[in-house]
């Protein structure tokens, strides 16, 4: 709690307002950019800046044409831009994440009323849109050991390397050492491979209360259970769990996509359930779907369940509360 002199009670309020939550998310995402910058060079920084700028410009233009108050107090468009960038291959043409960001802002977020009113995770929707549009570019990853990429904003030529998620999809064990997968020295979407940094970001966001651990816990528990029960590679359940968690964008989705407070359920039980639904769907779509990265689609489908989950949890809690109330008299 922090002391603040408000004119109406309560005079002590939470020190985590919405803008601070968004700033924390931006800090975490910027920290996540450090290792990709080391591996792929400053191109990823430029891509992140362009995408964030595109998102901010789209929001500004929407507010201008909709004749609404022009303000960007909560940096949510920057968060959307950075999340979209993290799910792109390092060698993607800049217009692909910019298009995803524009779709997220102009189609998924602003028409519903902006932050707090959007029913779907904007970044997930944007990435899903460009996934359907240009799957070949989106699943073609440069090798992090191949040196820095040129700064050219257009599509660049590079030798595509097989990502761990693609290997799992083919039913073989990824050739990378687990330590490389933890440090992010594997091909994949640029912000999703460094598991250790992702874990640190998760702890930071949970400690700062910018993200809710219940959603992440539900997501990881359900995806882990699915991986252990239905392994795609030969080996123990633990081996399957290790590779499934470390491959692709699953961990990133657990920390940054499912934890979006606007599109996640508000109730405690609903949060666990929504995370679990997204986790199971991610694994199911990975195994039986068309694309190796399915977390965005799973998150969008889990967003659909939010009203139902919340309604059920509220009815159950209120019924319990009413029973408690009548029992006491």
């Amino acid at each position: 709690m922090i002391l603040r002199g408000f004119s109406r009670p309560p005079f002590l309020r939470s020190e985590e307002p919405v803008d601070a939550m968004m700033r924390d998310a931006v800090f975490a995402l910027l920290a996540l950019l450090a290792l990709p910058t080391v591996f792929y060079g400053p191109r990823v920084l430029l891509m992140a800046a362009c995408t964030a700028a595109a998102c901010a410009a789209c929001e500004f233009l929407f507010l201008l044409f909709a004749r609404r108050e022009l303000r960007f107090p909560e940096c949510s468009c920057v968060v959307t831009g950075l999340v979209v960038t993290m799910l792109m291959p390092a060698g993607a043409a800049f217009w692909i994440p910019a298009l995803a960001g524009a779709f997220a802002i102009l189609v998924v977020k602003m028409p519903f009323g902006g932050l707090g009113c959007n029913p779907f995770q904007p970044a997930a929707a944007g990435v899903a849109f460009v996934t359907l549009l240009r799957p070949a570019e989106l699943f073609s990853y440069p090798d992090p050991a191949g040196g820095w990429l040129p700064l050219s904003p257009g599509g660049i030529a590079y030798a595509a390397a097989e990502s761990p998620a693609a290997a799992l999809r083919s039913g073989v064990r990824p050739a990378m050492a687990p330590l490389d997968m933890i440090w992010g020295r594997t091909p994949g979407p640029l912000g999703t491979t460094a598991a250790l940094v992702l874990a640190a970001c998760a702890l930071y966001l949970f400690a700062r209360r910018a993200a809710d651990w219940k959603l992440t816990a539900g997501f990881l528990a359900a995806s882990g259970a699915y991986a252990a029960l239905f392994p795609r590679v030969v080996g123990s359940a633990l081996t399957s769990l290790k590779y499934e968690w470390l491959a692709g964008s699953l961990l990133f989705a657990a920390v940054f996509l499912v934890t979006d407070p606007v599109t996640a359920p508000r109730t405690r039980a609903g949060k666990f359930a929504s995370g679990a639904i997204a986790g199971v769907l991610t694994m199911f779509l990975r195994e039986f779907g068309r694309f190796e990265q399915a977390a965005c689609f799973a998150v969008l489908l889990a967003n659909l369940c939010r009203p139902f989950l919340d309604r059920a949890a509220i009815a159950w809690t209120l019924r319990k509360g009413a029973r408690h109330e009548t029992g006491k008299a």
């Binding site: 408000f6 909560e74 902006g114 407070p261």
Partner: peptide, 21 residues
Amino acid sequence: LALPHARERRPFACVGCGRCA
């Protein structure tokens, strides 16, 4: 209570964090 004076915080739209519940 004498509380240090601070700037008023502008309200945002509900972001659905569920902390109130």
